[in-house]
Deep mutational scan, measured.
Amino acid sequence: TQTTHELTIPNNLIGCIIGRQGANINEIRQMSGAQIKIANPVEGSSGRQVTITGSAASISLAQYLINARLSSE
């Protein structure tokens, strides 16, 4: 079954999640098997909405990979 998880990434950290020309986010997508959508910046908001869709296992793996990127910054 597909589930969806949403999280907010601070604007100053979204770059390390996306990577150069989307390299990091594509790697996270491939490794986790989850669909990951990053919302466009919202004016006045300090973060970007990230939506992860997939199986429970792929979502938790995607979250783990995202958190690993954030903590390495």
Rank of each mutant, 00 (worst) to 15 (best):
residue 47 G to S: 13
residue 3 T to G: 15
residue 32 S to F: 00
residue 41 P to K: 12
residue 72 S to C: 10
residue 21 Q to G: 09
residue 16 C to I: 15
residue 10 P to R: 03
residue 49 Q to S: 12
residue 72 S to N: 15
residue 38 I to K: 02
residue 17 I to Y: 02
residue 58 S to C: 06
residue 50 V to S: 00
residue 11 N to K: 07
residue 34 A to H: 03
residue 8 T to P: 04
residue 1 T to D: 15
residue 38 I to R: 02
residue 71 S to C: 13
residue 25 I to S: 02
residue 32 S to Q: 05
residue 11 N to Q: 08
residue 37 K to N: 13
residue 41 P to M: 14
residue 51 T to Y: 10
residue 67 N to V: 03
residue 20 R to F: 14
residue 60 S to N: 06
residue 34 A to L: 00
residue 34 A to P: 04
residue 59 I to G: 02
residue 53 T to R: 12
residue 44 G to M: 05
residue 52 I to P: 02
residue 18 I to K: 04
residue 63 Q to Y: 04
residue 7 L to N: 01
residue 1 T to C: 06
residue 13 L to W: 06
residue 17 I to W: 02
residue 58 S to W: 00
residue 2 Q to R: 13
residue 48 R to G: 02
residue 10 P to T: 03
residue 68 A to Y: 03
residue 6 E to P: 00
residue 52 I to Y: 00
residue 47 G to T: 12
residue 24 N to E: 12
residue 21 Q to S: 09
residue 6 E to C: 15
residue 42 V to M: 06
residue 43 E to V: 14
residue 17 I to V: 09
residue 30 Q to G: 07
residue 8 T to W: 10
residue 53 T to G: 05
residue 55 S to C: 06
residue 22 G to H: 08
residue 63 Q to L: 14
residue 9 I to C: 01
residue 32 S to I: 00
residue 15 G to K: 09
residue 23 A to C: 13
residue 72 S to T: 15
residue 24 N to F: 08
residue 7 L to V: 11
residue 22 G to D: 06
residue 10 P to I: 02
residue 62 A to R: 02
residue 35 Q to I: 09
residue 2 Q to N: 15
residue 71 S to Q: 07
residue 6 E to R: 15
residue 59 I to Q: 04
residue 66 I to L: 10
residue 62 A to K: 00
residue 40 N to P: 12
residue 19 G to M: 01
residue 16 C to Y: 07
residue 52 I to D: 03
residue 63 Q to E: 12
residue 44 G to R: 06
residue 47 G to M: 13
residue 18 I to Y: 03
residue 13 L to K: 14
residue 58 S to I: 00
residue 1 T to N: 15
residue 33 G to M: 02
residue 27 E to V: 06
residue 44 G to N: 08
residue 69 R to H: 04
residue 41 P to D: 09
residue 63 Q to R: 13
residue 37 K to C: 04
residue 66 I to A: 04
residue 43 E to C: 07
residue 41 P to A: 13
residue 12 N to T: 10
residue 27 E to R: 12
residue 35 Q to H: 15
residue 70 L to I: 06
residue 5 H to K: 14
residue 9 I to S: 00
